[in-house]
């Protein structure tokens, strides 16, 4: 009969409408189960798989629960344990980056010899395709994916070209975002460190007889720059945490 299709369609929409209210009355608290209430009216919502339909996420008061592997723009890790950046300026990430949006300048010491630290590290967020290759192939766990997607800005250049200071975050920021991967990584690193130490010790025992190891003090300027970077990173991470919680 003409018109049944139309009625059926309207019926589905109407059922959705009624269901929403029914659901609201019966199970408002229950359906937010697993969601994280961070106070100040901010909730992180985990869509239950057996919930009929979808929960509307009332951004910005509510957020979607991002899976651990979520990727947006990379960040550099400041290792708070050793109090230095993990990046060694090896350049692998710049090599594998498909649109070639990573720029690295290796630092040099006073004598002009290259040292294994980046002096500059840029990522052009107007090019980055969030492909994860830099993270996947970094051998030092120095670059990771940030979950922060709130990067919109009024200006494009240079605001969206992130330099080292803007990219760096402390280790615990990363550990909080990527708990599972972080735990795995720590285990592997501990193991590797133990192996390296064993090797080192064997070597040192051999060499110890000959000469006393001499400590080279790091140049003042480098230290203070590192300190400054770290401060910046901490500050940024704090702001982000505040913004999120």
């Amino acid at each position: 009969m003409f018109g049944t299709g139309l009625l059926k369609g309207l019926g589905v929409t109407f059922k959705h409408l009624v269901d929403t209210y029914k659901d609201d009355m019966q199970s408002t608290p229950a359906r937010y189960q697993g969601s994280d209430d961070r106070g100040k009216g901010l909730k992180v919502i985990d869509q239950p798989v057996d919930q009929e339909g979808l929960l509307t996420i009332q951004y910005p008061e509510e957020r979607r629960l991002l899976p651990e592997r979520f990727r947006y723009i990379p960040m550099l890790i400041w290792d708070t344990e050793t109090d230095e950046e993990r990046c060694t300026a090896c350049g692998i990430c710049a090599k594998v980056c498909p649109p070639q949006c990573i720029w690295i300048t290796r630092a040099t010491d006073e004598a002009g010899k290259p040292v294994t630290r980046p002096q500059d590290f840029f990522i052009d967020a107007t090019i980055c395709m969030s492909c994860n290759y830099c993270v996947e192939f970094c051998p030092f766990d120095a670059i990771k994916m940030d979950h922060d997607a709130e990067l919109a800005s009024f200006e494009r250049f240079p605001h969206l070209v992130y330099d080292k200071g803007e990219l760096t975050v402390p280790l615990d920021y990363y550990a909080a975002l990527w708990p599972v991967q972080y735990a795995e990584e720590q285990e592997r690193r501990a193991q590797e460190a133990a192996e390296a130490r064993a090797k080192e010790e064997a070597k040192a025992a051999r060499a110890a007889a000959k000469e006393v190891k001499e400590e080279t003090p790091a140049p003042e300027a480098k230290l203070s720059r590192a300190e400054e970077l770290k401060q910046k990173a901490m500050e940024r991470a704090r702001q982000r945490r505040e913004a999120q919680s």
Binding site: A94, P98, W103, I104, R106, D120, F157
Partner: peptide, 15 residues
């Protein structure tokens, strides 16, 4: 061919 040589180890960032 990529990788471009200008990206590492001496990168003068330039658009």
């Amino acid at each position: 061919q990529k990788p471009f040589r200008s990206r590492h180890p001496r990168a003068d960032f330039a658009r």
